[in-house]
Amino acid sequence: MRQGEISLVGLLALFSLYLMWKSTELPIGYIRGQGPGGGFWPFWLALGMLLSCLASAWNWWRGLSPASRSDEPLMDAFGWRTLLYVGGSVVVFVALISIVSMYGAVAAFLFYYLRFLGRHSWFLTLTISILLPIGLFFFFEAVMLISMPQGMSFTQPFFDLMYDIIY
C-alpha cells in the first residue's frame, strides 16, 4: 500500500502537469477588455491539483496517511481476480455494444454474470438474460423514444421485428 500510494500521487501529479500544459493552449492571464482568458480557470485549478499532490506526498513521507504506514499489498489474488472477471466483463460488455447492439450486449453480459459468476440456474439465467433486454427495449425505444446502438447489420432483422410490434 505504501508504495502504491506514492506511485498514485506521482501519476496524479503528472496528470496535473499535463492539464496545466493543455490549459496554456488558451490564454491563462487577464485580457484587458475581455476578462480572464479561456485557459485561466483550468490552469489554476490544475495547479491546485499539483499542489495537493505535493501535500499528499509530504503527508506520505511523514507517514500521516493510513496507506503510507501499511505494508500490506494493494490487493490479494482474490482482489485482482475480481477486477479481471467483473471489471473485465464490463469492458467486454461496452465493447460488444458496437457489434451486437446494446440489447444484445446486455443479454450477453447478464448471461455471463448470472451463469458463470453468480452460478444461478439455467432457467433463471435465461429468463433474466432474455426478458430484461426486451423490457429495456420497450422502455427506451417505445416509451422514452431513445434509440440505443443497433450494432452491426446482422442485428437488423431483430430490430425490424421489434419495431413492427411498437409501431
Binding site: M102, V106, Y113, L117, G118, R119, I128, I146, M148
Partner: peptide, 18 residues
C-alpha cells in the same frame, strides 16, 4: 447480490448512454 450487481452494471451502462 449476484443478481443485483449485474442489474446495476446494466442500468449504469444503458442509463449512461440514454
Amino acid at each position: 447480490f449476484t443478481i443485483l450487481a449485474p442489474l446495476i452494471f446494466v442500468l449504469s451502462i444503458i442509463g449512461g448512454f440514454a
